[in-house]
Design a protein around this nucleic acid. Structure first.
Lengths: 235, 235
DNA sequence: TAATACATACCTTCAGTTGGTATTAAAGTT
DNA sequence: AACTTTAATACCAACTGAAGGTATGTATTA
């Protein structure tokens, strides 16, 4: 549920005086990505036109956009890439933390997934990802092709080696964990009430206990409740 | 995983002699839906143009399409609706079957989900739904907004009443069951090898046993293996 | 001087519209 | 029952507009 956390909703970029060329082009590039991400989240990728993006920029034109990106699709990929990069760094640091065993790493992954979400103050309403198919697909793809094979599964296999995790199905467990945590418990996908979210957490806790894992404690569940409370307040 | 089963891949409609008007317009309508479904599955919704659909029809023109549907989006909705309708009828008949208790109904749902998939002979390659965001979103939406509340959850609550199912989380269990069965074990989304699919099944069996449910037996798991074998053969 | 960072104008593709025509079904007439 | 009239239907052909993308030019920086 960490994904799509680090984006800043609808804060308009300050307009620059028209200059023919920016000395620091990566500012422009970042601005395009930021504006695009906000629009993609608010209106959805397919309902965001290039003109919408241009309007969100400070006086820049289509030429600028197509100088940095060769298509709208490429903008999307870059936006997704930046989102994933943020998650990747967090996951990687946990995976490579020598001071934790596998089980502790898994818990930490869960914990930060809940924390990292609380920071952005949501000014605008964020529509459900079910109405934003491209972003939804990107989320699922990131889970299956990045998070699981690069981080979760290695962590679980490390846990198998150090004895802190026991399972005959490391890959399957990884996938299910991520599907539960990042899809089923994602307020952007399942816009549950706080109460429903808490029930989900407790059910997940029970499922994991049935598999012999004590991953979710009451504090983490309460944190999840808070997360949903924040999300539901701005509705 | 039953969804998207009843579509017939790339069998071209026989061309009718140009007639100014069809006496039986619902033939035309069905033809549009069939052609569209095939194209949407093969090329994806966004990469299918109205012209592609028209080309798949037997000499009909754009006017015909826009006479029956007022937008491309509406064609999609109709296509999805027809797919969902097929699933709905099967699920409803099981839900309303007085001769089964709740637990038996759940098992039957799982069983038919595996059977109904084997019938279409896939002539064309079906790309992954991750590359077909609109259809993926439709699948997820159908799970959360149709299958779970209308069928699975009522069945589980019926099972609670008749004592064949025990859980404190009927809704949560419903959602997780459907996510596992229709998304995670869906070859259109997770294109696993047969061996991987079997491992998933056995893991799922273990999870369910941990919750006190004996839903998956070895025969059903083998059936799932067959399902994936069929899918992987045409690749 | 060459590459870069844009701007402007144009092109293309595709969803959707408009106005018409032939066909069918229904209603009225004999 | 046959025949005409009428209205709705099923479709066709040509057009429109919006949006993604391109080509070319220009000022700026390295």
């Amino acid at each position: 549920m960490i994904m799509y956390a680090n984006y800043i909703p609808t804060v308009c970029m300050e307009e620059k005086k028209t200059m023919a060329r920016n000395k620091y082009p990566e500012e422009t590039l970042n601005q395009i990505l930021t504006v695009s991400l906000n629009l993609f989240m608010e209106k959805g990728y397919e309902h965001t036109s290039i003109q919408d993006i241009i309007n969100g920029l400070g006086g820049l034109t289509k030429g600028a956009v197509y100088h940095h990106f060769k298509s709208k699709e490429e903008i999307l990929q870059a936006v997704i890439g930046r989102l994933n990069q943020g998650v990747d760094e967090v996951y990687a640091s946990i995976r490579d933390d020598k001071s934790l065993n596998g089980h502790e790493k898994l818990r930490k992954i869960f914990r930060v997934s809940l924390n990292d979400h609380s920071k952005p103050e949501m000014t605008s309403t964020i529509p459900n990802l079910l109405d934003n198919p491209r972003m939804l697909a990107a989320l699922l793809r990131n889970i299956t092709e990045e998070s699981v094979p690069k981080y979760i599964q290695p962590i679980i296999e490390h846990g198998l080696a150090d004895g802190s995790i026991k399972t005959d199905y490391p890959k399957e467990l990884s996938e299910v964990l991520m599907l539960m945590g990042n899809l089923w418990l994602n307020p952007l996908v399942f816009s549950d009430t706080t109460e429903n979210a808490l029930r989900k957490c407790r059910f997940l806790q029970q499922v994991l206990l049935g598999l012999g894992f004590d991953l979710l404690d009451d504090q983490m569940i309460e944190r999840c409740g808070q997360l949903f409370r924040v999300y539901n307040e701005k509705a």
